[in-house]
């Protein structure tokens, strides 16, 4: 599996888009830190960018890579390697290279600015961790979509729809349901529902860490009330881990049963 990972990583590390992505974070980091000069504001802006952008890029890269590597995957399948190793290797290659673009792209301006010496270092570390989590989750989801859809246009459509749903529509539906069922106690439902969207969950996690109650919103405040800051973070991290593991498991299962 490591061999496959190494090569798909090397393949992506030389793709122009990896550098565009890397450059974007580099620029964003510098602009936010050096033009803004307010660390906590920078963290919040970065969070808003990361929770929307990493899932989108993860989704698009995941689906495009697997579709374009289709024939290459066939070549690998005819070699003496287990299916699981091929797909896990390719998946990790994409997820790791995207995560690396994020971590290094934002890490360089952080270090130059001197974040490492400041008290906010853990906020930044958590941001990067959440970004990496979202990358792993959405790459896994989109790879699942690509494995289940031979038709590229359809697959691409589903993937974008998934992202749009998680990033935008979910919140809208959520709000509407809260307004419509205003008269009922919705705490449990809300808690439950936020677990089903990794983007929401990441946002709550970062805001709990930042401890800015004004920005927590309804779900975040509930989380805080229900679990407290510390265990709220642990629980959301655990659920995020589940969000990463389940699609990866499904991906391997689907790959094992698929005809190529």
């Amino acid at each position: 599996m490591l061999k496959i990972l190494k090569y798909s990583f090397a393949d992506l590390a030389r793709s122009r888009w990896s550098y565009v992505y890397f450059g974007f974070y580099l620029l964003l980091g510098f602009v936010l830190l050096f033009l803004n000069n307010d660390l906590s504001k920078a963290v919040i802006t970065l969070m808003n960018v990361i929770v929307v952008l990493t899932p989108m890029i993860g989704t698009i890269f995941g689906i495009m890579y697997f579709y374009s590597a289709r024939e290459f995957t066939e070549l690998l399948l005819s070699q003496p390697i287990k299916r699981r190793d091929i797909f896990l290797g390719q998946y990790l290659g994409i997820a790791l290279s995207l995560s690396l673009s994020l971590v290094v792209g934002l890490g360089i301006p952080f270090i130059i600015y001197g974040v490492a010496q400041s008290s906010e270092i853990w906020d930044f570390a958590l941001l990067l961790l959440v970004g990496a989590f979202l990358t792993f989750i959405f790459v896994a989801l989109s790879v699942n979509i690509s494995l289940r859809n031979e038709n590229k246009v359809k697959g691409f459509g589903y993937a974008i729809l998934l992202w749009l749903f998680m990033a935008v529509i979910y919140d809208g539906l959520f709000l509407i349901s809260l307004i419509m069922f205003d008269d009922y106690p919705l705490d449990k439902f809300t808690l439950f529902a936020s677990m089903f969207n990794p983007i929401d969950l990441s946002r709550i996690l970062v805001l709990l860490k930042l401890d800015i109650s004004a920005l927590l919103g309804y779900t975040g405040a509930l989380f805080q009330n229900f679990f407290g800051n510390g265990s709220g973070m642990i629980i959301s991290l655990l659920v995020l881990t589940l969000w990463a593991i389940l699609p990866i498991g499904l991906l391997i299962r689907t790959a094992k049963r698929k005809d190529f």
Binding site: Y7, S8, A10, D11, L12, R14, S15, S68, A69, R70, E71, F72, E74, L75, S78, Q79, P80, I81
Partner: peptide, 18 residues
């Protein structure tokens, strides 16, 4: 067992960046 088989697929397409 695929160690003992060589396979040449119909369409040759490989990763573009290698």
């Amino acid at each position: 067992y695929r160690n003992r088989i060589g396979y040449m697929p119909q369409i040759a397409r490989f990763p573009d960046n290698l």
